[in-house]
């Protein structure tokens, strides 16, 4: 193709067509990114209109703050647990769906419905569902004689994990299901002629072929679970205490109390923690030839 194009023509249209993207990246991504790094080195706050450069003091303050590391720990546990549970349940659900049954089309729509609901609005609906006085879940639990406080320290973390699984298993399901549709029927037919049963076919054919899908789904869910903010913030605000404060809520708390320097510094530390996984994810997302 390049032979057909006079070089200067291609290079000019390249810049013209790329201009909106490049301008946007420069103005809305790179400049704020640099500005964020700059603020991380300032003692800037709502009360300090004339900030000065304090170098790594903010970073040091964040790294020495034990509640920051509790937030990191909570975030990592949350991410690992919900991602693995959603992958497993999503895969099993896709296996269940991967056949003919009455009402399939409608049930597919209903199953993936939660993916389209804004997490913040889902959070409000969860609050209603779990409300101690008027919610459905406490009412049902009390019929069985269980009087537990869902937002107390004992139940709140498992509850949040469960709610994440409830909303995002359909996402994992959808990706697995789409992947299963691209597995040629002939493979299963050949296997069944060879006397392979349903579960054997699933294990020997479906699982290995869908491994790449599983990896990408794990990355997509993992990244989103790591930065979860909406549902947790709407439901618990990070509490009780800082029991459910994840890194996003930690940074938001610093930001909303006016400590811009600390919030920016905490963001930088979080990015440094994420740095080792960047090349892996980028290769997967940007270069389909290799994945």
């Amino acid at each position: 193709m390049s032979q057909l194009v006079r070089p200067n023509r291609a290079s000019r249209s390249r810049w013209v067509l790329g201009a909106p993207l490049l301008i946007f990246l420069a103005a809305v991504v790179l400049f704020p990114l640099g500005y964020g790094l700059f603020v991380a080195g300032q003692d800037r706050s709502l009360l300090n209109p004339d900030p000065s450069w304090i170098g790594l003091d903010n970073i040091a303050a964040v790294v020495q703050d034990s509640s920051f590391w509790r937030a990191v720990r909570f975030t990592v546990i949350y991410t690992v647990v919900v991602t693995s549970v959603e992958l497993i349940l999503g895969f099993l659900l896709a296996l269940l769906f991967n056949r003919r049954f009455p009402g399939k089309r409608l049930l597919l729509s209903l199953t993936i419905l939660p993916v389209m609901i804004a997490p913040a609005l889902m959070g409000i609906m969860f609050r209603l569902l779990l409300n101690q006085d008027i919610g459905l879940v406490p009412s049902v639990l009390s019929v069985f004689g269980w009087e537990i406080s869902l937002f107390g320290t004992d139940a709140v973390v498992p509850m949040l994990l469960l709610l994440d699984v409830l909303q995002w298993t359909p996402f994992a399901f959808l990706l697995f299901y789409a992947g299963m549709q691209s597995v040629p029927d002939e493979l299963y037919e050949a296997a069944s002629i060879d006397g392979s049963g349903y579960w054997r076919s699933a294990l020997a054919i479906t699982v290995p072929l869908l491994l790449p899908v599983a990896v990408v789904t794990a990355f997509l869910r993992g990244v989103d679970a790591f930065r979860t903010f909406d549902v947790v913030y709407v439901l618990t605000g990070g509490g009780p205490g800082d029991y459910t404060t994840n890194v996003s809520i930690y940074i938001y708390k610093a930001f909303s109390s006016g400590n811009f320097g600390i919030a920016a510094a905490a963001s930088v530390v979080v990015c440094l923690i994420l740095l080792p996984v960047v090349p892996v994810v980028v290769r997967r997302l940007a270069d389909p030839a290799r994945s």
Binding site: V29, P32, L33, Y35, G36, V39, V223, F226, R227, F229, V247, S248, I251, Y252, F255, F260, A263, A264, S267, V268, V270, C271, L274, V277, V278, V281, V282, L285
Partner: peptide, 13 residues
């Protein structure tokens, strides 16, 4: 790679 950066990072700037 932008997909990886927590959105909250951009909150302050």
């Amino acid at each position: 790679a932008l997909r990886l950066i927590p959105v909250i990072f951009f909150a302050v700037p």
